[in-house]
């Protein structure tokens, strides 16, 4: 039991951050109109591509002679980049259509 109490007390910051971030995620998109559901999902999809940071770290720290880790890390960087870049570009293409119409 003591272990848990100590864990709780020494990680209070993180516990607060996690709970508040959970509510923030819900709050921040709660007023979204239906027309933006698809672009918003696509934008959120690009944001979880933040795992690319993890993949960069994983590849950076892989020993030069460990081809397994180098391979896994490299694949992860490529996949993560696809998620991020593809995600943002696709979202931009969708949202481009919502720009103000030019008067003809």
């Amino acid at each position: 039991m003591n272990v848990w109490i100590e864990f709780f007390l020494s990680n209070l910051d993180m516990i607060y951050i996690v709970i508040l971030a959970l509510f923030l995620g819900v709050e921040v998109i709660s007023a979204v109109p239906t027309i933006l559901h698809t672009p918003l999902m696509s934008g959120a999809n690009a944001i979880h591509g933040v795992v690319i940071i993890g993949s960069i770290i994983a590849l950076a720290l892989a020993p030069e002679d460990n081809y397994l880790l180098l391979g896994l890390g490299f694949a992860a960087v490529v996949l993560g980049t696809l998620n991020v870049v593809g995600g943002f570009v696709v979202t931009d293409r969708m949202l481009e259509m919502f720009k103000e119409k030019k008067k003809q």
């Binding site: 959970l22 923030l24 995620g25």
Partner: peptide, 18 residues
Amino acid sequence: NMAMIIGGILVGSAGTLL
């Protein structure tokens, strides 16, 4: 990694609501 934690949680909860 804080950026991954916050980005991940945000998308996790916003995505669930969506």
